[in-house]
Amino acid sequence: MAADPRLARAMDPRRTATPPQPPPPPPPAQSEQKPVGGYDGVEDVNLDSETRREREDFKLKFCTVCASNNNRSMEAHLRLSLASYPVLSFGTGSLVRLPGPSITQPNVYSFNNTSYESMRQELLAKDPRLYRANGILPMLERNSSVKWGPERWQDWPVGMPRLSEYQQGKGSKGAEGGVVDVVITCEERCWDAVVDNLIERGSPLNRPVHVINVDIKDNHEEALVGGKAILDLADSLNEAANEERVDTEGNMSFDERVPDIIADWQERWPHLPALWTLAWF
């Protein structure tokens, strides 16, 4: 294992022959007290998070979604939870698929009842060199520090209290009600699946939810960039939500501003095409 891959990436992402591995799980001491900025050598976004957190009590609740609830959604989950947002994460695929020795031999697991730790153990037994080199083992290590295992969006009982020990993890605090304000998907396919699934459910809860897609390529590098972008988006949205609460006249309606916030955000992150809709739980 080389030095922190993000540092290497900061020098020149394209020079590295193999993609950097995902971040190792952060030391436990870090998560509570210390400022989260600097955790990965990128200080910019989180620099004022300390002050910001004191100023704002209200936190939007987020949910990140990708295909397998492993790489992109988990990277974003970690990021958002470190910024102390309540956050859940899901995958929309039929199965959890991790790369295997070749494209045609993926490692396949079922959602909801396989833990990240058991996947890690299995792959460690299969071929530690391969799965460490392609970053799967470090990714699973990170994931198991975030939550128990991958969950499938379609099986999520929205509104069901999330209090069981399997549902605890980073970002679970504040999301006990089992409902979120914003769903962020990492691929258009997932956005389609989520929107379609919400129509299918028939919106029995009458709770509005913004479903936003941020198109992120499925590799470790892009997941890191995407996680940063998603945090940026979350911060912008949360700021607007707080402004609405301060301005009681109703001139600063949060929901109304969401598309404009996305458009502004898109200017900052032109490589991650966004898509949005207002759906119902």
Partner: peptide, 8 residues
């Protein structure tokens, strides 16, 4: 290069 969690 391997592309983690990118399925076939």
């Amino acid at each position: 290069d391997f592309e983690p969690s990118e399925d076939r």
